[in-house]
Design a protein around this nucleic acid. Sequence first.
DNA 1: CTGCGTTACTGGCACGTGTAACTGACGAGC
DNA 2: GCTCGTCAGTTACACGTGCCAGTAACGCAG
Lengths: 330, 330
Amino acid sequence: MADQKKGKRRITSVDVAREAGLSRATVSFVLNDTPGQSIPEATRQRVLQAADRLGYTPYAPARTLRSGRSDVVLFVLPDWPQGPTMAEFVDRAAQVLAGAGLTLITHVHTGPDDDLARLWTALAPAAVFGMRPFTADEMAGMKRANIAAVLPSAEQSGHDVGSTLWLNGVGRLQAQYLIGKGHTRLAYVLPDDPRLRALGQGRAEGAAQVCAEAGLPVPIVSTIPLDTAAAAKTVAGWRQPPTAVCAYNDEVALALLAGMRKLGTSLPVIGADDIPAARFAVPPLTTIAQDSGELGARTAAALLRALNGEPSELDVLPDAGIRVVERESA
Amino acid sequence: MADQKKGKRRITSVDVAREAGLSRATVSFVLNDTPGQSIPEATRQRVLQAADRLGYTPYAPARTLRSGRSDVVLFVLPDWPQGPTMAEFVDRAAQVLAGAGLTLITHVHTGPDDDLARLWTALAPAAVFGMRPFTADEMAGMKRANIAAVLPSAEQSGHDVGSTLWLNGVGRLQAQYLIGKGHTRLAYVLPDDPRLRALGQGRAEGAAQVCAEAGLPVPIVSTIPLDTAAAAKTVAGWRQPPTAVCAYNDEVALALLAGMRKLGTSLPVIGADDIPAARFAVPPLTTIAQDSGELGARTAAALLRALNGEPSELDVLPDAGIRVVERESA
DNA sequence: CTGCGTTACTGGCACGTGTAACTGACGAGC
DNA sequence: GCTCGTCAGTTACACGTGCCAGTAACGCAG
């Protein structure tokens, strides 16, 4: 709020030091609460007030250069699976990280893999989190870039965490629900978007596991585009029709309902994600809802633990707040 | 790919200089194509090969510290309006920016406004882009943080660019379409999510403008939650029912269709965004599709122009690739 | 041989910060 | 009176980069 209009020079800790009549080091100690320093309350206040008066903000690049680590956490999204689900996840994760002084940044990664590397060097993030596991090359690159916590890591039990852990859970729950309703022959329908293939297979496998455990035949797996006619054709093409269908997500489920409506047939369908459109469908769609906000918060917490050196896996995640929303379609 | 496993020290330009048997300055000149330097091809190759051999990547924080500007563009999302639309927008924008050596980073901003400031200082971005206009305080903060281009700026004609420009266009087109079908009394239905209020009003105003221009009464504006019963109640509550309804987006439109189905009535409805669920609705939903990828690309281009000093407004945007997708609901 | 411009480099400062190592002063203990 | 420990600070270096100013070597006109 002071009157330093002369030029638009950045306000540095030097300015604060001059204003407070102290050395820059003292200023730094106060502002960072550096442990092992004895600073009388009077001096501390002098510094804090000077900083406030000048509107001082530490310059992150310099800080990062010095300490070798920034307070940015990078969240790499492979592409855009769903809307509100992801949104809540990111929201809550950001909140938790902010509580620890970290800033969550998301980057949608679509292009070739080498601009991911550019990102790491450009941001020097404290940690990176992604949906898909990282390759060995990528891991090496991050290690060289001095990035501390990487979640999920590919070494971690050699599994694709994304599809194995929580997405798997969705498929399991879908199948459990339908089997509980007395169904014995299931189908699993995936979208034809290549970007969703890995995730889709994870869910389908989850359902297959449950069927196997119940002594039922494995589900027929079909892939359809988001198109009424194509969905109808797929449904009509089943020689031995299933007694109920699991869909990869609500959009696929809606496509199926539309296809069956066109054929004049009807099968129980369960979706996933509980998008707003699900409850307005004809018939209203039974689906799986996950509390993705909670999931985001837990993931962030795991990340923080990893940053503190405690080697925390993502074990906490599997069935976090995942439940069936029962409507009329199944 | 060399064998520098000893410790995990970062590879700096010093290493490259030593490897090439040259000074660090020369290395820098070569790698940055610094103009006004005469460097023989042989030397240049020597440097490039050394850098490649060591796998050198310049350390962005240091570069930023020195030059005062990073190659990151920050995209502040106020919250999560819609799914795939935004996704494409960001995707294409990122692509265009990457072509200019810039990296697009998105951050969902939900909390209090002061952690936005933290973001600027944490990233030192070259530019910031947001949906909502920035306050004077925020603008001042960015100026002090030495951020070059800010789009949209609040000074810019004093308008809310988000709702005035493109979103307005959606409302206009919806009304134009319905009027073209012979409708004379319209309603505009908004969602009750407070985060979408400003955008919703922009769209409703667009429709109102078109009605006024055509000498028709202004649309009734209603707000509904995403709930079948509530939608039914709203529809039933209209004393003088409209002859057709515009919805803020497809989700609202689907809610309306569900509500009317419950009442046993039926009115033409037009939505917006063309989400996948729209085509599977009963009846299939007529809606507005925008080529948001194109929009993202143009916005990014405008940003680049602004970065180059050419004062380019967002004028290019208004009706970029926005069109009616005609189905059966209207 | 001297003066001068060009080529091909190099030395060194600056960016803003964190922190280890140092210093002067003061009181306590022998 | 001297040493020693603690307090309250300061000095100085390092982080990795961009680039200005300088400088040897060399060719060439006078």
